[in-house]
Design a protein around this nucleic acid. Structure first.
Lengths: 362, 362
DNA sequence: CCTCAGCATGTAATCGATTCCACGAGGAGG
DNA sequence: CCTCCTCGTGGAATCGATTACATGCTGAGG
């Protein structure tokens, strides 16, 4: 691989001049510039990013540690993050924690060792010493989707409170009174907040949320299945199961089907996080949709602001309820079935990326 | 951030000794070793991977350029790649090409600039000059899923021929005679091969594959929708649509639903690439499943073999047909409906990794 | 008691860039 | 004509590691 020295030799100038041309420093003669560029061309020279990073102490790389690549929500988040980062001149290295704190730490350590310029994290747990140290040490960092309370790091996330209230209103309107939730790990903010929002919304209707109706999941499909089986085994099973993410909803669907039961006749189902497939499941699943793409972009902007010395901003965007048929039909409100309400092109990747809708930032 | 010099000062030794301790070189006294380790501990020192890479000319990093992160198939592939790489002591940087050749080139260039040790690619097109040059220049490289003919690079992929034949047998058995396919880009091997396999299988039953029944897609949902609409507009629309990937199947489903038609009564649907959601779509979708996890692992092993000087091996694994209900019911063969055949726990991420089940492929 | 092997250690070169500083040439201004 | 500033350029230090080579010390063997 040709180095800057080879280019310098080929062009008959010093390495300093080559470097200046490459970083278009003003003080280079037109003659030298053309000779250097010609040499670069003939040698097929590409600057060594490793060497450059060592010298400048900048990698122009962001780390993104997500909880689970197999979850379409995070996949979409990752895509928008990479897109925005690329637009701002950064690359992204993704670490997949698989909802396992030790794997999360592995990736954080790895990214830090590589001297990434900043870190985007959706923490799997309440915060390992490693991550807390990194935050305290001043590593540019932004939390996205989930966050760790008490740490001075900007947070970019969706607020699902209003949407959960809408969901409960919808369920109540359909006559459901026994409502259960499959929660995420209590150590995650999304794990506990969604339960709280659900409980509060139920309270408005005077409906309690007994412990038996709070299943402890881990955001993975298998836990959704296990918890749902527990619900179905109760003396008085719930009429509705609300899964705190889409994978647990998938698991719930599996469990219901394994019993030979049907959604929504035998039991209703709703999920947090909307995905294109929910339109085509049997039945189409009512879900709370986050403005995922917008969140990813906002998170990158906040992180890059922080990196480049501008004050970063926390952002909270509202989630919204998307009613489909998995909770039952309401002949009154539901004269517009969802398949007409959500036009077809929305189910492509452009979904949720309409910035003009539902904006309310803090 | 503490450097090796700080550690050396703290421990009262030279940087060489520190380096030797860190790389556990035999020739270090026990005393020096403990002093160095203590210094490392108190300073919270972590070696700078950038500097190390510059010196050793190894990054212990693999690049993975996939065609589309939003496609669950590639997402699962990426996960298994990262897993195996981690087990072998490598990190992975993922580049998402979004099926766009210029974006693919962007990522390849970026990864090469970062001096990754090797490249795993699922090419979006027939091979850009950049990629061909890289291959010729001796960059360790392995193609996964798709490949570029005429380039001397190991290929790890699934052979869908037998499964496609099984599919056509299944469709023929159900009485279908007008079979159409939504193809991928002709510039990709999977784009053209799947059409060829389909055509050959049809030929065995004396069924032609007219041009009108070959829709040109690009592996994205939107193209599946467009092509399917074209099929439905034909004077004699097909009885079956076979989508060459799961996203185009999603688009096809959207198109069918937009017309108010039903699968499989009005039109049957099958897809290449199985995903967990296909179990729960309306109706469950018959698909050809690849051993995705195994492919990812084999690809990493081949690449690391190449990097570490062992001869890499191309690998081809068989895909298999998973019959569900989207092509119609066959009262004869189908007395075991799919939901019982595929036990619930299979729909988690462990899916497809159970070699023993549902094997109806050669 | 001398020699030499081998071990522990340090000094310094090196990887490929960026960048400070010095220097010479040339032009403007006095 | 001299001075000084600007511009283009090159030399060399530097980033943080690894590693070849040199050196001093210890102990075994003759």
């Amino acid at each position: 691989m040709a180095s800057i020295k080879d280019v310098a030799a080929e062009a008959g100038v010093s390495v300093a001049t080559v470097s200046r041309v490459l970083n278009d420093h003003p003080s280079v003669s037109a003659d030298a510039r053309t000779r250097v560029l010609a040499a670069v061309e003939t040698l097929g020279y590409r600057p060594n990013a490793v060497a450059r990073s060592l010298r400048t102490d900048q990698t122009h790389t962001l780390g993104l540690v997500i909880s689970d690549v197999l979850n379409p929500y995070f996949t979409e988040l990752a895509r928008s993050v990479e897109e925005e980062a690329r637009a701002l001149g950064y690359s992204v290295i993704i670490g997949n924690a698989d909802e396992r704190p030790e794997l999360q730490d592995h990736h954080v350590r790895n990214l830090l060792d590589r001297r990434i310029d900043g870190l985007l994290v959706s923490p799997t747990d309440g915060g390992s010493p490693l991550m807390l140290d990194a935050a305290r040490a001043g590593t540019p960092m932004v939390f996205v989707d989930r966050w760790i309370p008490g740490v001075d790091v900007p947070v970019v996330r969706a607020d699902g409170r209003a949407a959960v209230r809408d969901l409960v209103a919808h369920l109540h309107g359909l006559g459901h009174r026994r409502l259960a939730i499959i929660a995420g790990p209590a150590a995650t903010t999304t794990g506990s907040e969604r339960v709280e929002a659900f409980r509060e919304a139920l309270a408005e209707y005077g409906i309690p949320l007994p412990d038996a109706y709070i299943g402890q999941g881990d955001f993975q499909a298998e836990s959704g299945r296990r918890v749902t089986e527990g619900f179905l085994d109760l003396a008085e099973p719930p009429e509705v199961v609300f899964a705190a993410d889409n994978l647990m909803a998938l698991g719930a669907l599996d469990a219901v089907r394994a019993r030979g039961l049907r959604v929504p006749c035998d039991i209703a189902l709703a999920a947090f996080d909307d995905i294109p497939w929910f339109v085509h499941t049997d039945p189409p699943i009512t879900a709370i949709a986050q403005p995922t793409g917008e969140l990813g972009r906002a998170a990158v902007r906040a992180l890059v602001d922080r990196i480049e010395g501008r004050p970063p901003q926390s952002v909270t965007l509202p989630a919204r309820l998307v009613v489909r048929r998995s909770c039952g039909e309401n002949p009154e409100q539901n004269q517009n079935p969802e398949q007409n309400q959500r036009p077809a092109q929305n189910q492509s990747r452009a979904q949720n990326e309409n910035p003009e809708q539902n904006r309310s930032t803090s």
